[in-house]
């Protein structure tokens, strides 16, 4: 049974197609990234998977059930975008209610509320109301809410958007920590973050599925190094790198950043590159075995 299976999935808002004929199959396991520019259809896809909205056409199965099916409820959690908790009740009251709605007794539900808040390092906020929280804290509470009942699948719609680096780090660490027992699907614009967290990447653009790649498999199968220098004449460096034995092609991916494609036989190219940096007095920032997610997605795009 697939984690998620969408067939010919479309959703229109008036005359605008937010998702257009998407076929997508995802399997449980490592965290999955959902990327794409604004308006690509990421939130629409999440909303469809969670049953917030209904598809215009096509079918969806999540863990073998249609979205909103009662059997699915205890197996899925989510951080919805732009949703706010009830301002009248404390976090403990609301999280306990959610746990009780999932079938827990009042006593167990209180313990569960305390547990999930401690996971996001907000145990002290148990008695606070949502209006007393900062944006970053609200996001963490919303993630705590998604963890209630330890679901098999958790969808996080832009979990680190608009929050400070310290809070973003807490969230990333939590996802990494829980990903052995839970499959996360994370939507974000931060490709560096997704690269660190996720293996599979689903790329949406203008409502259509453009690419579905595995970062690990991609790096294994292809032969790339990414070299980033602190300062350099980019054109000159590109030329010199291209002259190295075994190098097929050098692209300037960004300012002072070069993606080097090489032949499989060039097994010592990394050492050659470091030697070249030393000879030419190029202060290097990093030498990465493979390509960044950004390069993987947009180079072939």
């Amino acid at each position: 049974m697939s984690l998620i299976k969408c067939q010919n999935l479309s959703r229109a808002y008036g005359s605008k197609m937010a998702l257009n004929n998407v076929d997508l199959t995802l399997e449980a396991g490592h965290p999955i990234a959902l990327v794409g520019p604004n308006g690509a259809g990421k939130t629409t896809l999440f909303s469809l998977l969670l049953g917030y909205i209904r598809p215009t056409s096509g079918s969806i199965e999540v863990l073998g059930y249609a979205p909103g099916h009662p059997s699915l409820r205890n197996n899925i959690g989510a951080l919805p975008q732009d949703a706010k908790l009830d301002p009248d009740f404390t976090l403990e009251q609301q999280l306990s209610l959610f746990a009780q709605l999932r079938g827990m007794s009042a006593k167990t539900a209180k313990r569960e509320a305390a547990r999930v808040l401690s996971l996001v390092q907000l145990s002290d906020a148990l008695k606070q109301k949502p209006t007393a929280l900062s944006h970053g804290m609200s996001k963490r509470v919303a993630i705590a809410q998604a963890l209630i009942g330890s679901p098999k699948l958790i969808l996080l719609d832009e979990p680190t958007a608009g929050i400070d680096p310290a809070n973003a780090r807490i969230i990333r660490e939590l996802i990494a920590q829980l990903s052995d027992s839970t499959t996360f699907i994370v939507s974000s614009h931060n490709l560096d973050e997704l690269e660190r967290l996720c293996d599979q990447v689903v790329f949406l653009e203008q409502g259509a599925l453009k690419q579905q790649v595995s970062i690990a498999a991609g790096n294994h199968a292809s032969h790339y190094y990414t070299l980033q220098l602190q300062q350099a004449d980019d054109q000159q460096v590109q030329q010199m790198l291209a002259q190295q034995p075994g190098v097929i092609k050098v692209n300037i991916a960004a300012h002072h950043t070069f993606v080097i494609e090489y032949q499989e036989s060039a097994t010592e190219l990394d050492l050659q590159l470091l030697t070249l940096c030393k000879q030419q007095a190029w202060p290097y920032r990093l030498l990465l075995n493979g390509r960044s997610l950004e390069d993987t997605l947009f180079a072939s795009h």
Partner: peptide, 8 residues
Amino acid sequence: RYLSLHCS
């Protein structure tokens, strides 16, 4: 959106 994640 929160409530409908936890009940019908």
